[in-house]
Simulated assay, not measured.
Amino acid sequence: MEKNVALIALFAALIAVLGLIPKITLGFGVPITAQSLGIMLAGAVLGSKRGALAVLLFLLLVAVGLPLLAGGRGGLGVFAGPTAGFLFSWPVAAWLTGFIVEKWRQPPLALSVFVAAILGGIVLSYAMGIVGLSLALGKSLTESTSLMLVFIPGDLIKAAIAGALTSALAKARPSSVLSRA
């Protein structure tokens, strides 16, 4: 129990630290950040339940006003802005990523995590994020989708990094990858 709480807190902190990497904000208000890598890693390493809880803890800290999002943003206002759909997707994305890694054991771990991170961290996040962006900006879903296409190459790189890091961690400390325990 204590180990789980510590790991959940550790991954919430990791997501926060990844927000310190300078963001690049595009003209329509959605920044390119490294925090989505943390979402992918939380699910891949901790598994579905613990990964989602780590993200929920992170979002709770953001909601109470801690400036943990990229660019030092925090508070309830971020949950009504252009990125709100992505923020709401993050716990579900971590859960789905972890669930796929837990259940899909045939391929090498790096490949399993890569595919899981694409499905959870990209496809699901984009689906919810595009809806939120559309509502916040008053644009159609097609217009919002076209705005998001620029992010796909970077997110695919993050998914590959998540696969490589999780695989390396499993080789160095097999018991630390709880999604495969």
Rank of each mutant, 00 (worst) to 15 (best):
155 D>W: 07
77 G>W: 08
61 L>Q: 11
71 G>M: 10
22 P>I: 13
83 T>I: 12
71 G>K: 07
172 A>Y: 13
93 A>P: 02
159 A>S: 07
124 L>P: 03
21 I>S: 05
11 F>V: 00
15 I>V: 12
140 S>T: 15
68 L>E: 00
4 N>S: 15
67 P>V: 08
51 G>Y: 07
80 A>Y: 08
13 A>L: 11
111 L>A: 14
119 L>H: 04
1 M>A: 12
118 I>P: 07
131 V>G: 06
46 L>W: 12
96 L>R: 02
79 F>A: 01
27 G>A: 13
62 V>C: 05
72 G>H: 08
44 A>I: 04
170 A>R: 13
162 A>R: 00
100 I>A: 04
168 A>H: 11
1 M>C: 06
53 L>Q: 13
162 A>D: 00
84 A>K: 03
87 L>N: 06
89 S>Y: 07
36 S>C: 04
171 K>A: 14
175 S>V: 06
7 L>M: 12
139 K>D: 13
47 G>Q: 11
177 V>Y: 09
75 G>V: 04
22 P>N: 13
122 I>G: 10
78 V>P: 01
167 S>D: 14
95 W>T: 01
77 G>F: 09
82 P>A: 15
84 A>Y: 05
144 S>L: 08
123 V>G: 02
173 R>K: 14
104 W>C: 00
77 G>M: 09
84 A>P: 06
17 V>P: 01
121 G>Q: 10
41 L>T: 03
152 I>M: 01
19 G>N: 02
76 L>T: 09
121 G>E: 09
106 Q>T: 12
138 G>E: 06
152 I>H: 01
103 K>E: 02
113 V>A: 01
71 G>P: 10
100 I>T: 03
24 I>C: 02
90 W>E: 01
92 V>A: 15
145 T>S: 15
52 A>N: 02
142 T>R: 13
55 V>K: 06
108 P>I: 03
124 L>R: 07
59 L>K: 03
73 R>K: 15
149 L>T: 04
120 G>A: 08
82 P>F: 10
75 G>A: 04
148 M>R: 05
6 A>D: 00
71 G>N: 09
163 G>F: 12
39 I>H: 12
152 I>F: 11
4 N>L: 06
63 A>S: 09
135 L>Q: 08
24 I>D: 01
140 S>K: 02
58 F>E: 02
82 P>Q: 09
134 S>Q: 09
114 F>V: 00
77 G>K: 10
104 W>Q: 00
100 I>P: 02
58 F>D: 04
36 S>I: 08
